[in-house]
Nucleic acid binder design. Structure first.
Lengths: 135, 135
DNA sequence: CTATTGACATAGTGGTTTAGTAGGTATATA
DNA sequence: TATATACCTACTAAACCACTATGTCAATAG
């Protein structure tokens, strides 16, 4: 398993905000209730989304969150990469990893590179806009 | 990261055995040296391969391991599935998992199902025979 | 028959990740 | 001023990962 609850919750949170924001802000609590996710744990997830610039927050009464951009501008890949750190299927392909000394004659490296590419390409196809509305 | 050292070591072990078995048995130690993998840890990995029927073992002097079938009959997918338990990218798709109660109106489920499929299809394409020899 | 070579078995371990929980502070609105 | 909201720090139980340690069982070579 490669995508944890953190990534999946982020996706569901963003999709829920996209669906409900209208012209105002959506409080975290409302999303937590609708999506049946622990409020406290969601806070941790959402903090990273704010820090990453995906969400704009407003404190105090009437506050909450809204998308910083329009839903079509959020690729699923970029969201998951932010939350999971990396989507690489194997450790040796993780960014910021020192290159494996065996990589020159590694028989399995091309296999992993190919796998990494199809995963990336697949997830880059979708955006937040694909994730809500069509009941 | 979704494929651990266990899966990667298994692949490298099997490929090494395929390459060196000839008509005899390949001792674990030789593979460990060639592949620079901890001998003791490899034992754990290999035990599962024997249990899963992928390898045939012979004890004592002159013993070791050889493939139970010919290399073309080992799909990378089946090897990795055996070692990792599941290749599902998300928990809710893991086999033997009770179905998620939200699955009927889950907006992200089709996304995960699609991802799961392209990963499976990709890994099913390759066999052990693709993983050795062509220096 | 014995020493050696190997597979097989069981248990422990230090570090990291996961999925949270607890309790409090800062800030905006009614 | 009360309330609703975001934000912050810290803790935790459980699982997982990548090993290590210490053996026992079995087959062959001498």
């Amino acid at each position: 398993m490669m995508i944890s609850t953190k990534g999946r919750y982020a996706l569901r949170f963003l999709a829920d905000v996209a669906e409900h924001q209208g012209d105002g802000f959506v409080p975290l609590k409302d999303v937590a209730v609708r999506q049946k996710i622990s409020e406290k744990y969601l806070e941790i997830v959402v903090k990273e989304l704010v820090k990453g610039g995906l969400l704009t927050a407003l404190r105090g009464k009437g506050g909450g969150y809204r998308l910083s951009r329009s839903p079509e501008e959020y690729s699923v890949k970029s969201i998951l990469e932010l939350m999971e750190g990396s989507l690489a299927p194997v450790a040796c392909l993780e960014s910021g990893q020192n290159v494996c000394p065996r990589s020159n004659d590694c028989r399995t490296l091309p296999l992993w590179q190919g796998l990494d590419k199809i995963i990336s390409d697949y997830l880059a196809q979708f955006t937040l806009a694909d994730l809500y509305g069509k009941t």
